[in-house]
Design a protein around this nucleic acid. Structure first.
Length: 744
RNA sequence: UGGGGAUUCGCCAAGUGGUAAGGCACUAGCUUUUGGUGCUAGCAUUCAUAGGUUCGAAUCCUAUAUCCCCAUCCA
């Protein structure tokens, strides 16, 4: 776990501390209309992880409000994913469809308080009436229907008296709301459809915005965590719960950025397209970012969990590099799985001076993996090695077998090149070599230095296996769909050769094929007759990577637009502030452009003739408060009082900010705050000196660093002094004193 | 275009007025019978840009730029 908390956990911490909730309840609320992918895994980790961390609970809830798209098989896939990742839901799986009758009652409630109405506009008309982002919409004439009529109509909608689309239940909010989502959102639609759980019982189905918040509420959810695209829906979420006047505690919605990974597609719609088009073999195709795909490919739940932990949770749209995921699976498997030898592209090697055969005892694990286990490796005259591990005309720094360079057969002997056998067209079909009988692994007395040890299998005893190599499914970083697909994303090797122990002993399901990567015995297609291995991920490879592209950092140039021109009145004010009062242009500009601020400023100026300090206070501090609240708790007079204390040296700017905050919160007079908290600043060097000396004595390493030229540390020392004096030390004086003392 | 979000290294991401965390990637060196692993070191005088406030700004103020979301009877 990271030491630092993400923003959600920070909020929850505060809510718990403030007593807003006694227990933390979250939920993972997928719609069962597709297979879960690694983006869902992120959400699962967040919701179940938070529940675990705060000793609360997380509900698994199927958000099944659209009977047209949902299906039981997706419910099962979702349950599998949660279980596979190692989380447990509380007692049972929840379904929004279980709440249909309660939801219906809430809708009736809304109608009764005249906050919902049955609209009978056509779909097209509804769209038109909604307006656009820049133009407000207009309300349907049906919004005027009486409560009784609405109640009657809604009941008849439920009873199936109308056709799909004939009527619709809407919230009565505001057709001119700037947030489009609040323009009388749809609550219930008529659907004569069979629901996979509710059957034919219902003819009306609730919309997401109505069902979700209430389902959360009914389950006692405290924190309803969803992705960024629901930010605009938060207003409806709150509106529904508030206008129904539900008892506290109630849930609140928080949004985080969904997961994006480069070279992969995460949209459920596009994933479905890939599956249906046959571009992949199914939802569990190992090239897919679905949980089922990763599982089939051989990823471990631990690696996915770790990945989710590493990428963090934030609100900025982001695209994680696949290498981060690959790191997680390598990192996990490195500690766990046996190393074995498999030759993917075999070339025959004949050891001319070796006769007979022998069994070599070889460890499954390298020296740095603290696990035990060995197998017997048959060795004989005829073996196979990887075609790439021999090179007749090696490039510089090639470590493997060449006509001049011997190589070690991993766990066995060193061999030296003797002769090449080629066919009529010049292709190498066999390499003849000599072995060094005194170079056996572990008891090597030959003194021969080799640069590497390569994998091999004995020709007679090795087993033929099928190996499926996966490359990234897409050619481009940000794929749009089938058009970007990598035609070589799957490579099947039918005749790979593997050492016999893997097949006979089956020491594990996952292996590292030495020097190649991690592989997984396919859980479905693997048979005794035709063993199949999926490549999970390649080992890191700093050899083939040596030919690397150099990247250049382009300096981005930003073109700044211009601020809107000032009107006549603003211009007049600006000139007055800049010329008469001698404010700097920035200050004059800020005040002149904001009517509220300029009024505030002029009023305070009439009480205290200190234009510059006042202007600073108003343009910076007052402006901030104005952004956050509509009604200020303090007056221009109080500001004048506060500025007066700065001007006469009673308090420093730093204290002034502290006092200001207090004043903004309580509305108390600055004088009173300063007095009650004893905030008068300390400017007397004789009082400050001992404190500074103490801090210098306590931080010898920082003093040394400072003397070596790290002048930034001056801020550190000043900060420490301010901290120990509770902000009361006069920073200017401290600054001078510290600088003097440090330079002594 | 109205509204809502976001912007800290190639990619994630801490940080909420007092020395710019960490991970991935990358680059060296050491170790290594995996060109793996491990270890060590190196990777942001600067936080989208420009101003302002402050002894001190990634953090506060102002303006600007760029990206994302919203006009499904989907969720």
């Amino acid at each position: 776990m990271n030491e630092s908390k993400d923003f959600l956990r920070t909020i929850i911490d505060e809510d718990l501390k403030s007593g807003k909730y006694k227990e933390i309840i979250t939920r993972f609320p997928p719609e069962p209309n597709g297979f879960p992918h690694i983006g869902h895994a992120k959400s699962i980790c967040i919701n179940f992880g938070i529940a675990r961390d705060f000793e609360g609970q997380c509900n698994l809830r199927m958000d099944d409000t659209d009977p047209k798209k949902e299906d039981t098989k997706y419910v099962e896939a979702l349950k599998d994913a949660v279980k596979w990742l190692g989380f447990e839901w509380n007692t049972k799986v929840h379904f929004t469809s279980d709440y249909f009758s309660k939801l219906y009652d809430y809708a009736v409630e809304l109608i009764k308080i005249d906050k919902a109405y049955v609209d009978s506009l056509s779909e097209e008309e509804i769209r038109q009436y909604r307006g656009t982002v820049t133009q407000s919409g207009k309300r349907s004439k049906y919004a005027k229907r009486s409560v009784e009529e609405n109640l009657d109509l809604f009941a008849r909608m439920k009873n199936g008296e109308f056709k799909d689309g004939e009527h619709i239940l809407r919230a009565k909010i505001d057709m001119s709301a700037a947030n489009m989502k609040m323009r009388d959102p749809l609550l219930y639609r008529i659907r004569h459809a069979n629901h996979f759980r509710a059957g034919d019982k219902w003819c009306v189905y609730p919309m997401y915005d109505f069902a979700h918040c209430l389902s959360d509420y009914m389950e006692g959810v405290s924190h309803s965590i969803c992705t960024l695209e629901f930010e605009n829906n938060r207003d409806i979420y709150n509106w529904v719960l508030n206008t129904l006047k539900l008892e506290l505690p109630r849930p609140y919605q928080y949004e985080f950025a969904r997961l994006g990974i480069n070279y992969t597609i995460m949209s459920k719609r596009k994933l479905l397209e890939l599956v249906q088009s046959g571009e992949v073999s199914g939802w569990d195709d190992p090239r897919l970012p679905t949980i089922a795909g990763y599982k089939r490919r051989g990823y471990t739940p631990e690696s996915i969990l770790n990945f989710c932990d590493q990428i963090g949770i934030a609100k900025a749209n982001s695209m994680v590099d696949v290498s981060q995921l690959e790191f997680c699976i390598r990192d996990d498997l490195n500690k766990k799985v046996p190393r074995v030898m498999c030759v993917l592209d075999p070339i025959k090697v004949n050891i001319v001076n070796y006769d007979g055969c022998e069994k070599i005892d070889a460890s499954y694990y390298p020296h740095d993996v603290p696990k035990e286990g060995t197998r017997e490796l048959p060795f004989s005259k005829d073996i196979y090695i990887e075609r790439d591990d021999f090179n007749q005309n090696p490039p510089k720094d090639y470590f493997r077998l060449t006509p001049e360079q011997p190589v070690r057969l991993k766990h066995a002997y060193i061999i030296s090149f003797k002769e090449l056998i080629k066919d009529a067209s010049g292709n190498i079909i066999e390499i003849k070599v000599n072995y060094h009988s005194d170079s056996k692994s572990g008891v090597d007395t030959s003194g021969i230095k080799v640069k590497s040890a390569i994998q091999w299998v004995s020709a007679k005893e090795c087993k033929k296996v099928e190996v499926r190599l996966y490359n990234r499914l897409f050619l481009v970083e940000n794929p749009e769909g089938i058009k970007d697909i990598n035609p070589n994303s799957l490579q099947i090797i039918k005749n790979a050769l593997i050492e016999p122990a893997v097949i006979n002993e089956k020491p594990d399901e996952r292996f590292q094929f030495e020097r190649q990567g991690y592989f997984y015995a396919d859980p479905i297609d693997y048979t005794e007759q035709n063993p199949v291995f999926n490549k999970i991920v390649a080992l890191k490879d700093s050899w083939t990577k040596k030919v690397k592209t150099t990247k250049t950092k382009a300096n981005k140039i930003q073109i700044d637009g211009e601020a809107a021109p000032m009107n006549e009145e603003q211009n007049k004010a600006f000139n007055k502030y800049a010329n008469e009062l001698k404010l700097n242009n920035e200050l004059a500009n800020i005040l002149a452009r904001d009517e509220e601020l300029s009024h505030f400023f002029e009023e305070s100026l009439s009480l205290l003739n200190s234009p510059i300090t006042l202007a600073n206070m108003v343009a910076n501090e007052v402006a901030r408060e104005l952004k956050q609240t509509t009604k200020l708790k303090f007056t221009p007079k109080q500001i004048a009082e506060l500025v007066g204390m700065i001007d006469d040296g009673t308090i420093s700017n730093k204290i002034a900010k502290q006092v200001f905050e207090e004043m903004a919160k309580s509305g108390e007079n600055p004088n009173a705050i300063v007095e009650s908290k004893g905030l008068v600043q300390i400017s007397d060097p004789s009082k400050l000196s001992p404190i500074i000396d103490e801090i210098i004595a306590k931080n010898p390493t920082n003093v040394a660093k400072f003397k070596e030229g790290n002048t930034k540390l001056l801020g550190f020392f000043v900060g420490q002094v301010l901290k120990t004096t509770g902000g009361k030390a006069n920073p200017k004086v401290v600054n001078e004193l510290v600088a003097k003392k440090l330079n002594e």
